[in-house]
Amino acid sequence: MDVFMKGLSKAKEGVVAAAEKTKQGVAEAAGKTKEGVLYVGSKTKEGVVHGVATVAEKTKEQVTNVGGAVVTGVTAVAQKTVEGAGSIAAATGFVKKDQLGKNEEGAPQEGILEDMPVDPDNEAYEMPSEEGYQDYEPEA
């Protein structure tokens, strides 16, 4: 019985440690998101679009440190934060509304985080759909 109880105690310690790591990862992701939003706020009209992409990228980098179902929630929060940063930029006159959601080359930025393969159960990952990809044929 002692062996059984000791095993359960060790398992509990492992769960607590994993929860603490997840909590730490979420806190880091939130900190990076805040950094990115402050970065966007300090940019001029020309830099705002690039700044919004930076927020998304920093958040995406930190999301990889967070495991399990938390990833889905962090990704949703990050996307809403990026959308909010863009709205703030438009409201303050840093950028025109028609410039939001495009990178410096004018290509749409939507789907940055949505296409990231995420499995809350950590069982399997699927690649994003290939609808947006084109076949590449090298020139002879």
Rank of each mutant, 00 (worst) to 15 (best):
88 I>P: 02
30 A>D: 00
52 V>N: 00
108 P>C: 04
3 V>N: 09
73 G>A: 05
118 V>C: 11
115 D>E: 10
64 T>I: 07
9 S>H: 04
74 V>Y: 03
108 P>M: 07
131 E>K: 06
21 K>R: 04
47 G>K: 10
43 K>P: 00
109 Q>I: 10
63 V>Y: 11
42 S>N: 14
89 A>W: 14
55 V>W: 11
133 Y>H: 02
78 A>V: 06
21 K>Y: 12
115 D>P: 13
56 A>S: 08
59 T>G: 06
133 Y>T: 11
66 V>E: 01
128 P>T: 10
136 Y>Q: 13
5 M>W: 02
86 G>Y: 07
50 H>C: 11
109 Q>F: 04
119 D>P: 09
2 D>G: 01
96 K>N: 10
12 K>I: 09
75 T>C: 06
107 A>P: 07
30 A>V: 05
113 L>T: 06
106 G>I: 06
8 L>M: 02
76 A>R: 07
112 I>D: 06
130 E>T: 07
17 A>D: 05
92 T>L: 09
120 P>A: 07
70 V>D: 04
127 M>Q: 06
107 A>C: 09
65 N>W: 12
50 H>P: 04
27 A>K: 15
52 V>T: 00
87 S>R: 10
78 A>T: 05
138 P>Y: 08
16 V>E: 03
122 N>L: 07
121 D>Y: 15
90 A>D: 02
23 K>P: 01
137 E>T: 06
119 D>F: 08
66 V>R: 01
81 T>M: 08
70 V>T: 05
82 V>M: 03
106 G>T: 09
134 Q>P: 08
93 G>F: 08
65 N>G: 10
50 H>S: 10
94 F>H: 07
133 Y>C: 08
88 I>F: 11
67 G>W: 12
35 E>F: 09
3 V>F: 15
100 L>V: 06
121 D>P: 09
128 P>D: 07
15 V>Q: 00
41 G>C: 03
99 Q>N: 07
43 K>C: 14
92 T>M: 11
58 K>P: 00
97 K>C: 13
77 V>Q: 02
118 V>H: 11
59 T>F: 15
65 N>E: 07
31 G>S: 13
15 V>F: 03
73 G>Y: 01
127 M>I: 12
137 E>Q: 09
132 G>A: 09
25 G>L: 10
128 P>V: 04
65 N>A: 03
62 Q>V: 13
3 V>A: 05
138 P>W: 14
67 G>S: 10
99 Q>I: 14
55 V>L: 08
123 E>R: 14
91 A>D: 07
12 K>Q: 01
130 E>M: 06
113 L>Y: 08
82 V>I: 13
61 E>C: 10
123 E>D: 02
30 A>W: 08
115 D>C: 11
19 A>N: 01
54 T>I: 15
120 P>Q: 06
90 A>N: 09
81 T>I: 12
104 E>P: 14
26 V>K: 00
40 V>P: 00
96 K>T: 04
1 M>D: 01
48 V>Y: 04
66 V>T: 04
8 L>Y: 09
78 A>Q: 01
27 A>L: 09
57 E>Y: 02
110 E>P: 03
61 E>R: 02
44 T>P: 01
67 G>M: 02
98 D>A: 14
130 E>F: 07
10 K>F: 00
115 D>L: 08
17 A>E: 11
4 F>I: 02
120 P>K: 09
93 G>E: 06
51 G>H: 01
112 I>P: 05
66 V>G: 02
116 M>A: 15
51 G>I: 15
49 V>C: 08
93 G>T: 01
103 N>E: 05
74 V>F: 08
114 E>A: 14
51 G>Q: 02
4 F>H: 00
